[in-house]
Each structure stands twice: as structure tokens, then as C-alpha cells.
Design a binder for these strands. Sequence first.
RNA 1: GCCGGGAUGGCGGAAUCGGUAGACGCGCUGGACUCAAAAUCCAGUGUUCGAAAGGAUGUGGGGGUUCGAGUCCCCCUCCCGGCACCA
Length: 862
Amino acid sequence: MQQTYSPKDIEAAAQQQWENQQAFRASDSSSKPKYYCLSMFPYPSGKLHMGHVRNYTIGDVLSRHHRMKGFNVMQPMGWDAFGLPAENAAMANNVPPAAWTYSNIEYMKQQLKSLGLGVDWSREVTTCKPDYYRWEQWLFNRLFKKGVIYKKTSTVNWDPVDNTVLANEQVIDGRGWRSGAQVEKREIPMYFFRITQYADELLTDLDTLPGWPEQVKTMQANWIGKSYGVRFAFPYELDGKQDKLWVYTTRADTIMGVTFVAVAAEHPLATYAAKKNPALAAFVEECKHGGVAEADIATMEKKGMPTDISVTHPLTGEQVPVWVGNYVLMSYGEGAVMAVPAHDERDFGFAKKYRLPIQQSITVKDQSFSDAAWQEWYGDKNGVCVNSGRYDGLNFEQAVDAIAADLAAKGLGEKKTQFRLRDWGISRQRYWGCPIPIIHCSTCGDVPVPDDQLPVKLPENVVPDGAGSPLAKMPEFYECTCPQCGGKARRETDTMDTFVESSWYYARYASPQCDTGMVDKADAQKWLPVDQYIGGIEHAILHLLYARFFHKLMRDEGLVQGNEPFKNLLTQGMVVAPTFYRELPAGKKLWINPTEVEVEMDAKARPIGAKLIADGQPVVIGGTEKMSKSKNNGVDPQAIIDAYGADTARLFMMFAAPPDQQLEWSDSGVEGSFRFLRRVWNLCAELNELGHASADFSKLSADDQALRREMHLALKQANFDFSRHQFNTVVSAAMKMLNALEKAKSSADRAVLGESVSILLRLLSPITPHIAQTLWKELGYGDDILAAAWPEVDESALEQDEIELMIQVNGKLRGSLRIAKDLDKANIERLALAHEAVLRLLEGGTAKKVIVVPGRLVNVVI
RNA sequence: GCCGGGAUGGCGGAAUCGGUAGACGCGCUGGACUCAAAAUCCAGUGUUCGAAAGGAUGUGGGGGUUCGAGUCCCCCUCCCGGCACCA
């Protein structure tokens, strides 16, 4: 065997062996229990980044571990290939998105293979290919006919210069990213998935997912946001016509404190009032500026303007003024809200700003109300009604019940359960996406493209120019005939939200080549649900909610079984790195890649400065942030693989942090990981041929017993840590094993060494598969470590006669005691009280109390 | 703004049920090897007082519960993720 660890050679050889064996083909007909391990598929952006390496290493570690534990593992991979970056790259490089995407896929696939992932590549799916998206179109039509998909208008960011719709991320400080034009809100027709119809199920089924992080379930539950409230109306008369202004509130108990109502700028009442009020018309116009992102609207300054319209309070009969507010959105809820400044913090601020009346209607015992400043308790639901006529003294629930009943009696309202979740708008005015399979006919309306004419293929030779939708400028695409009447018609030119593709790919992997349906039902039944799903925490809400929704849609179409797609979920943290920069004259910053910087330390290794290696001049040390192009703090995984090998990259990724926490990049940490693997290699090279040694483990020297104990103790720890996905301490356990082996290697029994090394190699195998495989073979354990069984803990090796007990006095550590492992409490107490440190602190007095925690410590209270 | 999460040595992190804080690694210091360096190996390494023995102190900050708190409760600060069409 080679004396030096050479990752390049052994990794290529191991990967070749797996390739030759088709080692990771998942069998559809195995009798073993299945384990479907899925990592979120990548967007083919060009090359792998560290986040990918982390994600896929975690998935591979889980897959390989389960395989050794006897599971029939499926670990597929594919490409989330539609999306905006391809269009941007196309404009920058004048290359069609399709060509750019396919070449990225080719490169990244080779990169993924060089990581040594145990992926079943025969199941690869690529969402921008017609054989994939045709089934998306097929489902779209089924759902459209069923009414699960419908059309309505919705508000988008409109760039008036480029004449194009902008994504929220393309709006920077209220302006279009390319044109710099002030963005406007615009209403356009869109197709929607009726996800709200499934809101209750999406909420309650969270309780059936014990394998999901609480954190994610809480976020989803809050996102769905089921609320119990009252929908009611303020009647009004305008130009002699009776009408009603509807609002929804979860605080009907405060209804007697309403002092005004606010409507959206696009609300019919606002439009009406603006007609004869130029100032209001200007304000309504101003409200249309800016983007639609919630974060922007929530943080912007709340502005309003009065109208000369007033409506009638449904219970008091009083007149209530109508205001137009920039924070009220037409497309959400009723487009109007009741305002109770005394008990809603935002309304309070608004009322103070515009000197509107503030009317207390809730009180809490021993608290006094003042309209000078907002108090925490004003918004609580813990008070009782006051200044509320017949509702005075009622608590929240009683008041809501009584008020809802009175409103219902007048025909002006009723209790209503509502969700924060809104229907999912999927129309995108973009080119690089799945075409929406609808034909618009002037006589027949919106007609789905018949199944036998699917897929509606996206032309692949288009280079978008950033102005409007490319497909809408291509008559060869949109000109068509109506499938119903045969008349001239126009094809829909919007494409689907790319979240649609990623909502069902997990199901397609069960039968990726199926050309008779979206999925093969038998295969789907065999493989679904996904046993372990792994991906970034940033997908905690949208992607995971949409995929759960799609699973239910497919279930209701009879395509899949079960209610949920992902049994267990692991959300991994970001990969972060230090940042360095230099100030440029214009106040801008020049970001410098960490690899080009040398950090200077003081004597105690505290960083005191940094300089650019190239010119020796200082640079500023910035914060530690998510690896990104903009901060130039990304480290290219390829450089690490080339320099140290995939095993080192994988080991470092697993060791540096637990998977769900952020991972800080560290060059010296990578070197440390490499050093560890080299030490493993050197130890094995020194020991050579251990595979066939055998011995009677019941007759060992004390040292050999101690070594076995250490190995099995570490293994037990590692098993526990595997089960809770804490891989960093699995690596720690392997390091402890190596440390113990290096100490014992020259004196220990060959058979004990043989057992120990076999445990270490199998423990490392899921994490650093290439070196584990190579050494397994070289030391004569077998040809294929993948076929080896996971090591078992020998509990008898863990036993010991004596244990160490800590001695505390008043909770402070004062010493320790070696005792027989089964010594009874009375004797432990006696020994503890006789302990030198205890006697010293007792100063001849007596202990008040002695607490014995078996196997751990004794606390003497004096 | 709203929802969710996080904070432990110089650094990444460990501590499974409230019971030895700092495992494991990095860095640093000293030593061995070397003509020298790199690599490797050995030892030390929270802070602080002390020659040492030993003591004090210490898990973002402030309170509390407990024989005992990194862990449980209350309040606060800072950092990170998400925000699809907040009511």
C-alpha cells in the first residue's frame, strides 16, 4: 500500500469502482426497507458553491449510513433549471438561457460526481426539459378544469421604462434594478392556485410531522395564520345609492372604539372621492409608487388623507370618516380596515399623526388609559369593554360573541374564520419558465390545451432583452387556433412560477422516465414519502409549503398516497466567511477575497489587522457574512477539492458545525481536517493487514481493555450523534478513536487493533467514503466497505469496576472520589463527608444536607 | 414592521433528563527532531490572584427559581433567516 495519503489517486479509483458496480442504483424491487434521502436540487447557476457542498454532503452521509444499516437507499439528483438568473445571464452574454443552463448542468454534474456522492444518476430530472414540464402542464389543466386554478387580477411591480414586471428582488429602493425608474404598482390578470382551500389541512397536518423541526412548523403555522374574527359592514349612501363598506377584524371587541376607517388607494370609495378632489387624486397616485413587497410596505411611513365620505357605524349609528391609507392593500382582504386607535398600535400612531380622535373601549384592572402615549396593555386581549354601552364589562370572548350576534341580527356581519395565507399566484411575465397551457379564444374564453397536444414547448433559442415578455413578441409561439371552435386564438404567453417545478420533483424521482403519467403510481407508492429531506432554512416557508400543497393536490388526483411528502426534514444553516475590504474614494467598498488576505495576530492570537498579500498594505476586517458574490467572500469548493480532495472538504463541512447551524469557513480548519485524514492513513499504513486477526476479548490486559472501552464508548457516542444528526461530534468521536489508537498502536493486541481500526473506518465511511473504502480494502477487511455492516457497540467492553464521583460543597466543585461502581448511597455519603476538602470547609461543623446524584456527584450543603 | 432562530475561551464548537463548563479541532506558547526551515511528534493553553498548594471569577446583559442553572422562568441588547398580495 502507498505510504503517503494521496487523495487524487484514491478518490478517482474509488469513484471508478462505484461507477463500475453501479453501486448507487436504487432498486425498485429490493426486500430491504426503503430509505428515500432527498437533498434540495440545485439551481444550475454555473458552478457549485459551498452551500451545495454542505447540503449534499449531509444527504450523502445520511444515505451511506443508512445503507450500511441495511436500508435500500435512493438518493436522486436533478436540476431546478428554470429561473430568472438564466435570463439575466442571457442578456449579459447574449446566449440563450437554454444553452447557458445546459452547459452549467454539464459542469456542475461533473463537480457533484467529484464529491463522491452516492447518487443514483439514472434518476436525474431536469425541470426545463419538456418530458418534465409536460406533466406540470397536464396537471395544470386538470386543476383548471376542477376550479383549483382560477384567474383574477393581482398587483405586481411595474417598471414603466422597461415596460416589464419586476420581481421583488429586482426592486431596489423603490426603483427598477436595470432602468432605475420608479416602480409602480399595476394590476394584471394572473392564474392562481386555490391554496387557501387547503389552508386548514396544511395547518392541521403539521401535527403529523414529528420529524420536522418545531421552528419550521411554527413558521408555517404562523404563515398560514388561522384567525377567528368578524366580517362586518359600515353602510353608507352615495349619490342616493345604498351600499356597504366591508371590513374584517380579529378584534370585534373594540368595535365601539372605531373612530375612522381606512381604505386602499385603489378602493372604489377612494377612486370616487378622488374624482372631485385633486389633492386626494394626487395622493392616490402617490400610493401607487413603490413595490409590493411586504417588508417595504410594513416599514414605510404610514400616510393617509381624508375623503369627504363618511360611513355609518353599524352598532352606534354614528358617522365615521373614511380615510385613504397607503398601508391598506386592495388585493388583501376587503381593501379596507376599521381603525381603533386606542387599541391598535398602528392606528394609534396614525391617529396621533393626523389628530384623529382616540376612544378607549377596553380597560384592564388597575391600569389607567391615556391617549398621550402608547402602552403595551392597550393592545392586549385581557381587558373588558368600557365606554361600549351594552357591552361594558364583557371580556374578549363575550364581547365578540355579543357583537357578532348583534351585527348578524342587523344583517351587517358575521363571525368568520380567516387565513393569513393567500392564494398562490403563479403567472410570470417571463420567458425561461414552463408555459401555461392555456389558449385564449374570443368566443370560447380560456381553453386548456388538450392533453394530446402537450407539451406546449418553450422555444429554446431565444435571448430575452429585458423589455417585456419575449414570448408575447413571438407570433410563431402565440398564434394558434382554438381547440374548441377551431377559430383563430392566442396562446397564453405567461410562464409558471418556478416554485411549481420544485413542488413535485420529489415525486418524479420515483419514476423519472415515466412517459405515461406525471408519476408511475406503483413506483410512487413504493418510494414516497421522502424519508429524509435536506435543504436550506431559507426554504422553511414557501417551497416547503408549496410542495406540501402539491402533494395534497396530487393525492386528490389519485397520483400519490399519503398526506405529506416529507417525513423528516433537516434544515441546514448557511455557509459564512469573513469579509475584507478597502474604502474607495467615492465611499464605495472594494471587497477582497479572504484567500488574498493575511490576518495578523497579537501574541495571544487575537486578530489585530489584515493586509493584502499582493501589496502588503492593510485592508479593513469586515463582519462574517453569508458567502456571496457581492461581498467577494466566497470560497470555490473546486479549489478545495483540487488541493485536498473531496474527503477533506466533506470532513470539514461535517466537523465545523452541526448541520442546522451556520458554518464558518476556515482555511486552517480545512488543513486540520486534511491532517486528520493523513494521520488515519499513516496509522493504517504502519499497522498494515489487520483484517484477519482474532482473539478472545474476555482475556485482555488492562490496557487493551481500556482501549476497547474507549473505542466502544466513542462508537456509542457516535451512534447517538448520528441519530440526532449531529455529525460534528461524530467526527470528534472518530478523532478520539484515532488519538487512542496512536497511543496504543505499538503495545496493543493485534486483534484489538484490528477491531478498533475496522470500527474507525466504518464510522468514517459515510463522511469520508474514499479513504475509508481504500483502507478497508488495503487492510484486508474486504473489497467493499459499502457492503460492510455498521459496527455494533459491545456493551460488555464499557463496563468498569470503579467510577469517579465529583465532590461539591454548596454546589461548588471541591474535589473528587474514586469509588466502586455500585457503592450504596449511605457509604458514598460517609466517604464524601470524610473527604479532605469537605472537612476543611465544614470547619468542625455539620452538614445541613447531602445530595447524592448516583454516578455523578455528591453535593454537601453546609 | 411582523414571524422564526442565534449569542459559550483568541476562533469553530461540546456539555443527551437541571448535576465535573470548555470534549474535539483550529490558533498560540514552549520543547524534541533539523545546519536551518517546513512537516511531524511531545507538553501547556478561559480570565485572574499566587512561587506553588490553592482561591476568586466565568456561558451576550439584568433579575428570579433551585442544594445546584450554559440548560428552567421574566425583562433587555445585538446578530442572522423569511416576508408569498399584513388586517
